[in-house]
Design a protein around this nucleic acid. Structure first.
Lengths: 189, 189
DNA sequence: GCCGCAGTAGACAGAGTTGTCTACCCTGAA
DNA sequence: TTCAGGGTAGACAACTCTGTCTACTGCGGC
């Protein structure tokens, strides 16, 4: 369904489309998907309804594009941050600290979306699973090769998700980072 | 604000109120809070609008009552399940397995709500923090007394949250449980 | 020069949202 | 017996939501 191209390709990498997508990204991530009306996205991206609906036939299409964009953006940042902090397992905590302490941190966009869109966009679970798989792969790349690297990476990724959650409801991310560090230390000893 | 009693107590533990609350619990947990309209709750609990608004002056009041109810219900189940599985740290994985494999499992109601209500009901972060604090206390009670029990419990709770998330997007909870078991084993060795 | 098309501008439909209000019923306690 | 109050039944207001539609503009390539 989703991927069938229209007879005459109606959209491309236009400036308007980019503006819509970036605006939607900020609003969806900050306020949540359901809390953000299409009208708001349209108004804030300085575009008209006709233009919006030319690029995104429905809100769900925009949501999918948002998650796709978010995935690329976040993964690029994550991989870069891990390298910047040494490219080993020890890079995980300082990298996440950066994110958690960053201005508009509001948790994981995928986890948040999964919670609110289970009914209206069931595929968000699959999208989230793929996102977390890529995150786990990036983590695995930091670990020394061994027979249990895959499972170690799974465990680390699980702990990272726990830390993201905790950093989302605690006033400061310190406890989340400390607990994560404790887990990593004992897990990779 | 929230806790000020009205001059003449307008509500009590009536049957109607209970029906509304239980219906709201099921719908909010299954479909999400924003996705569930007040009309739906009213229709499915077999009550009229006037009755509903007598007990819950606004949807936010209902949401707060829902989270409170959910907290009591979930904590009671959790403590009971941990005891039933032996009352030690080893009880955590089988207890969660029960929940994850249960019929309507849809993740943690608090984490889900925090994601979608950040804007309209900011206090949900505090409610979630208190809920997780109680969960952590229940976990701490399983661990042998030591100087680091508190921090161990924090780390275990963080991993539990990670497992809840993973069980929410994976088709089966097996990987989540295995990764959690791995973390517990190395953490409590 | 003209034509296609991405864009602007905005009215409009149809459904759904929360919340209010009137009118009536029924029961249990003073 | 009266009467307060929790309940039923449902209209209605005011707003927001997604999505459609018409009419016009401005520009780049053929």
């Amino acid at each position: 369904m989703t991927a069938i191209a229209s007879p005459v390709p109606p959209v491309r990498d236009s400036a308007a489309r980019q503006r819509i997508l970036l605006t939607a990204h900020d609003l969806f991530y900050r306020d949540g998907v359901r809390a953000t009306g299409i009208d708001r996205v349209i108004a804030e991206s300085g575009v008209t309804k006709a233009t919006f609906y030319r690029h995104f036939p429905s809100k769900n299409d925009l949501v999918r594009a948002f998650l796709d964009h978010r995935h690329r953006r976040w993964m690029a940042w994550f991989v870069e941050a891990l390298q910047r902090h040494g490219g080993a397992a020890a890079a995980i905590v300082p990298s996440l600290a950066e994110w958690f302490r960053g201005e508009g941190f509001r948790g994981c966009a995928f986890i948040n979306s999964m919670g609110e869109l289970a009914g209206s966009l069931p595929e968000v679970a699959d999208i989230t699973r793929r996102h977390k798989q890529d995150m786990t792969d990036a983590i695995a790349a930091l670990l020394p090769a061994s027979r249990q690297r895959r499972q170690q990476a799974d465990a680390v990724a699980l702990a990272v998700d726990g830390a993201i959650i905790r950093a989302q409801f605690d006033p400061t991310p310190d406890a989340a980072l400390a607990a994560l560090a404790r887990i990593l230390k004992s897990l990779l000893a």
